[in-house]
Simulated scan of single mutants.
Amino acid sequence: MDDYLNDMALFVEVVKARGFRHAAEAIGMPNSTLSRRITALEKTIGLRLLHRTTRKIELTEAGQIYFERCKRIVDEARLAHEQLGEMLAQPSGVLRVSLPVDFAVTYLAPLIVEFAGLYPGIAFDFDLTPRRVDLVSEPFDVAIRMGESESSQLIARPLASLTPHLYASPGYLERAGEPGKPADLKQHECLSILKAGTWTLHDGKRTVTVPVSGRFALNSVGMIRRLAALDMGILLVPREVVDDELASGALRPVLPGWRGAPTSIYAITETRLLPAKTQRFIEFLRERLAR
């Protein structure tokens, strides 16, 4: 409520309490402050609202009319505030989200199912194409992105950081041998995203950059994961992307002491002023991805 509406609400409380002292006690405000606020309200509207005596207050004729109008306005404002609180507690509407295809399918899907169960009033409209949607001109509430954050004109909220590790299938390692050190990767089929010519690996103390090559260069993590499970080479991806393959034994770690540079995950929005459905979705993902 703005100051004028607050003063209207104070006036209503004074009339209901039949005096300043009881109203001041009820709302937790000093009696003198409350009296000054009502006097200032009378000056603002140019009307005498109350006859004050040492024992009681009485409404003037104008005060009676003003009280009835104020009470209706204040009651409506309080009802609207309560309804807004209910909307924030149980957000609703259509949540339009742009998602990275492979990460959404392999990792986010069960989290989205959990979120949908928590907020049955929300419907979902997902865009899982590889393109970068335009949040300014297209009707998306949020885009989930991996890697570097986008335009500085957009709002990027960090959700998590995933660290890539090396994996290969038992069949591939049996055929090609298992690398004992990062430099050995030069002799292997390495499944790269977007024709990466090198992999930079860390073991906590050392950092090495290894030239890598292979017959396949793709822009799909899902396809690279599938090729690795079919004995076609070594891949460098976050564990979260290959959880199912690791659990089934289709893939296993390679050079487990080494890892790639962390990959950041962001929630990208056009503005900081977000509807409740979008706020809850971003908060939920941040909490779950941080586990």
Results as ranks from 00 to 15, higher is better:
142 V>T: 06
171 G>E: 12
126 F>A: 10
182 P>Q: 06
246 L>I: 12
54 T>G: 05
184 D>F: 01
72 R>V: 09
34 L>C: 08
31 N>S: 10
259 R>I: 12
22 H>P: 02
225 R>Y: 00
87 M>D: 15
22 H>F: 00
48 R>C: 07
26 A>W: 01
45 I>N: 03
25 E>G: 03
78 R>I: 09
49 L>N: 00
10 L>G: 03
14 V>I: 06
177 G>Y: 04
116 A>N: 01
117 G>R: 11
270 E>M: 02
39 T>Y: 01
75 D>I: 05
152 S>K: 12
266 Y>D: 06
9 A>M: 01
12 V>I: 02
116 A>I: 02
14 V>F: 04
288 R>L: 12
174 E>D: 13
83 Q>M: 13
180 G>Q: 15
179 P>W: 03
68 E>A: 14
291 R>E: 15
256 P>M: 12
24 A>G: 02
212 V>R: 03
223 M>V: 12
203 D>Q: 11
187 Q>W: 02
233 G>Q: 01
189 E>Q: 10
54 T>P: 10
25 E>S: 11
3 D>N: 14
53 T>F: 00
150 E>P: 01
208 V>A: 05
233 G>R: 05
129 T>C: 09
141 D>V: 00
204 G>R: 00
238 P>T: 09
284 F>Y: 15
224 I>G: 14
42 E>N: 10
98 S>D: 14
180 G>Y: 06
136 V>H: 04
131 R>C: 03
48 R>Q: 12
60 T>N: 03
81 H>E: 12
140 F>V: 04
174 E>Q: 11
165 H>W: 04
244 D>S: 13
52 R>G: 02
19 G>K: 03
32 S>I: 12
83 Q>T: 06
237 V>P: 07
178 E>N: 14
13 E>N: 05
175 R>D: 01
135 L>V: 07
51 H>V: 12
22 H>R: 13
209 T>Q: 10
233 G>P: 10
77 A>D: 06
124 F>E: 00
154 L>D: 09
129 T>S: 11
16 K>P: 03
42 E>L: 04
5 L>K: 15
77 A>S: 15
131 R>F: 00
60 T>S: 08
244 D>C: 04
126 F>N: 05
218 L>F: 01
156 A>F: 04
102 D>H: 07
251 L>Y: 00
235 L>T: 11
211 P>Y: 03
94 V>W: 00
255 L>Y: 09
21 R>A: 13
213 S>I: 08
266 Y>T: 02
161 S>V: 10
62 A>P: 01
231 D>G: 12
